[in-house]
Amino acid sequence: MILHFTLNGQATRVECDPDRRVVDLLRQDLGLTGVKEACGAGECGACAILLDGVPRLSCLLLAAQLAGHEVLTIEGLAGGEAPHPLQEAFARAGAVQCGFCTPGMVLASHALLARQPRPSRQEIAQAIAGNLCRCTGYHKIIDAVRLAAGLSEDDS
């Protein structure tokens, strides 16, 4: 099928099978390898993208479902010359180790901050609970989201 959708702000036209997994479409066909795959079954969150602003699992989406919609991947988050503040905060707070969960974590955090600009540690943990990380113990990921939100350790 010919698929039309908006990808990282750009009108995109691509020919693909309608039942192609979106993670494969993005990684293999469109080269957006910041979208990771680690389980293929919706259990880890590494493949998260924003679909119309909502974090979704690209391993559980089919290409046809994108028609007419807006997709944001980690590559499109900064949208310019400088890193997005969340990316900067993840780097600064030490939230990145192997980094394989990081794109999904950043996007899940981005969606959280869009609806809750001053999240507590518990709210952050809840928001990223579907994104598995095997390296960090999550502590510094939560720190990073707080840092991006302009919150210090002492703010509740």
Partner: peptide, 20 residues
């Protein structure tokens, strides 16, 4: 001092792992 020099490339999705 932070940040680790690899962190931003990973957080931006630019780092190429073997699978990429």
């Amino acid at each position: 001092l932070p940040p680790r020099p690899d962190a931003l490339d990973k957080a931006s999705g630019r780092e190429k792992y073997a699978c990429d």
